[in-house]
Design a protein around this nucleic acid. Structure first.
Length: 566
RNA sequence: UGGGGAUUAGCCAAGUCGGUAAGGCAGCGGACUUUGACUCCGUCAUUCACAGGUUCGAGUCCUGUAUCCCCAGCCA
């Protein structure tokens, strides 16, 4: 058995070397398109679209749809449109169409066409008339409640509407009068005439048009009848020449209707096809617009771009790069099973991407004073520190060093536990980019709290001097008393945590504000939006440069990687 | 309850003429290190929801069962 395994491994390696490339399997959508290309179904064309309804901000779940649609465009040298699916005037707003465009661009995608479903209202109206003339649609006067009753349920077949057999002329006339605004909201609808006994509830004479006397963000007051998603969407796709209409799993039951609409209208030779995939779910976060809105309104969250949120604007503010998001989505893959991706996966790609891009800088969020007793009083020296040891091209900065420095309080333990190799009495560690220091004395106040440490340094151990005399196991971040920035730091953790009953609750510690944090001067020269890697675990992302009382506010994103456990 | 989907490790996920379970994340062990990071090396499914069947051989084919998700908006 073991031999077999090893041999298999060798074979694979050989194959990989021969190809020179790593094999990456194709997802089921790519395979469908491969087939269509082979059979020349669409004459070699591949055309997708990303069709958000402009009723909220995009989140990482949308990013999956965006990456899939635009990814296919790029792979097959096709096209991809951005289309606002704005068929319901009461829920939509221009504010969102702008935010959505910004987010798509930020992710790094450029659409071929920018459209609004509402651009096609005229066409859709004409197609509805075709359906009426064919006897495939009728105006129905049932109330919403009656319609529901007539529809039946899972086990009971529906009943035909008493208005189902109206004449073509009467339907045409009524439909036109609906459009002219002769009827109030809810008085009549246009319905497809399909099959009230269909086991698929979506096929039981679905509503195609409803009356809604509301201002539309794009068409204003031009229309008072609006098409329903199931009728509008296939038409939008067909008009734009979309070949593969990718959507999420919950629309699987709608596919027969999608096909029905296109077939019955019958003006497209090779209509687009709908393909469904599972949407992205993640642990530790909130994607539901409803709950996010509630938390924004009660002040728990600082807007839709709160760094704890997985909205694209929130992730951006938090310092997550578009590249990291795209890599994450590619790795997570596309399938049809409902799944919940662990947020560790995203964190991994954030680390991976920022690792080479983010400058390293030192910050101490819970300062403990250290006096270097053998360092000359009043003296300050500048030390050279590379910005990113893995990426020398980023250059270096100068950091001040003096007799008094601050280290992280948690980097000192008076009575060290096993495998703790940072600072403790008698132990020697390196101050990063500086010298070895040894702790000689612990100073406490009356209450027994540690107030400062007295250490000595060894000038021979200066960073970059090539000193190899002895080694230390720990390296500490520090900030000099002589020149530093006092700041308030916000620590962000996961928004959701597991409650006692296993249900997700809002993590009360998801945002912690800490004052009196100390940052090295380099932070002061950064641009707004800069990210820094710091300490052992996380990344620092500048949130705002607002300086009140000389205090700068930074975010520290925690929990990217925890690495030391007791 | 009728219909439509899904089910491969802690989490995603490959597996497409049936030929003896890719990869990533997380974990674990070790090496290295001026961030306990990073990097590196090793390890991590005798088994594919379950039960039968066909076959020399089944995650892949057949039959049955179970569980989860979606559908009863004039939302998308």
């Amino acid at each position: 058995m073991k031999m077999t395994k090893e041999n298999k491994h060798l074979d694979d390696a050989t194959v990989d070397n021969a190809n020179g490339t790593e094999f990456r399997s194709r997802n089921f959508i790519q395979q469908i398109i491969d087939e269509d290309m082979k059979s020349d179904k669409y004459g070699g064309r591949v055309h997708t679209r990303f069709p958000p309804e402009p009723n909220g901000y995009l989140h990482i779940g949308h990013a999956k749809a965006i990456c899939i649609n635009f990814g296919i465009k790029e792979e097959f040298s096709g096209k991809c449109n951005l289309r606002f699916d704005d068929t319901n005037p009461v829920k939509e707003d221009t504010e969102y169409v702008e935010a959505i465009q910004e987010d798509v661009k930020w992710l790094g995608f450029q659409w071929d066409g920018l459209f609004y479903a509402s651009d096609y209202f005229g066409k859709m109206y004409e197609y509805a008339q075709i359906l009426i003339r064919k006897g495939k649609a009728y105006v129905c006067d049932l109330t919403a409640e009656e319609t529901r009753e007539y529809r039946g349920d899972f086990t009971t077949p529906g009943k035909n509407s008493p208005y189902r057999e109206r004449s073509v002329e009467e339907n045409l006339d009524l439909f036109e009068r609906m459009k002219k605004g002769e009827f109030p909201d809810g008085e009549r609808v246009l319905r497809a005439k399909i099959d009230m006994e269909s086991p698929n509830l979506n096929m039981r004479d679905p509503v195609l048009y409803r009356i809604s006397h509301n201002e539309h963000h794009n068409t204003g007051a031009e229309w008072c009848i609006y098409p329903m998603y199931d009728y509008a969407h296939p038409i939008e796709d067909a008009i734009e020449g979309v070949t593969h209409s990718l959507c999420s799993l919950e629309f699987e039951n709608h596919r027969p209707l999608y096909d029905w609409v296109l077939n019955e209208i019958g003006v497209w030779e090779t209509p687009p096809q709908q393909i469904e995939f599972a949407r992205l779910n993640m642990t530790n976060t909130l994607m539901s617009k409803r709950y996010i809105r509630a938390l924004v309104e009660d002040g728990t969250l600082d807007g839709w771009n709160d760094p704890r949120l997985h909205t694209l604007s929130g992730l951006r503010r938090r310092g997550v790069t578009a590249e990291a998001i795209k890599n994450f989505i590619e790795e997570v893959g596309v399938s049809k099973s409902n799944s919940v991706v662990d947020s560790e996966n995203l964190d991994h790609f954030v680390r991976e991407d920022l690792k080479m891009k983010a400058p390293r800088a030192m910050a101490v969020i819970d300062p403990l004073k250290v006096v270097i007793t053998n360092y000359p009083e009043g003296q300050t020296e500048m030390l050279e520190a590379e910005l990113n040891p893995e990426n020398p091209e980023m250059g270096s900065r100068q950091i001040p060093f003096g007799r008094v420095v601050y280290v992280e309080r948690e980097d000192f333990m008076e009575e060290p536990v096993k495998k703790f190799f940072r600072l403790f009495p008698g132990n020697e560690v390196r101050l990063r980019h500086a010298y070895f220091i040894k702790c000689n004395e612990v100073i406490k106040d009356e209450a027994g709290n540690i107030t400062e440490l007295h250490c000595t340094y060894d000038p021979e151990t200066k960073s970059g001097s090539g000193f190899t005399g002895r080694k230390v196991k720990g390296t500490l971040h520090w900030v000099a008393e002589a020149d530093h920035i006092n700041a308030e730091v916000r620590l962000y953790d996961h928004l959701l945590a597991e409650g006692e009953d296993g249900e997700d609750i809002v993590n009360p510690n998801s945002l912690v504000k800490l004052e009196n944090c100390k940052l090295e001067p380099y932070f002061g020269s950064s641009e707004k939006g800069d990210k820094f890697q710091f300490l052992r675990h996380g990344f620092f992302c500048e949130d705002s440069k607002v300086s009140t009382d000389e205090m700068k506010v930074f975010n520290r994103i925690v929990s990217l990687k925890s690495s030391w456990k007791k």
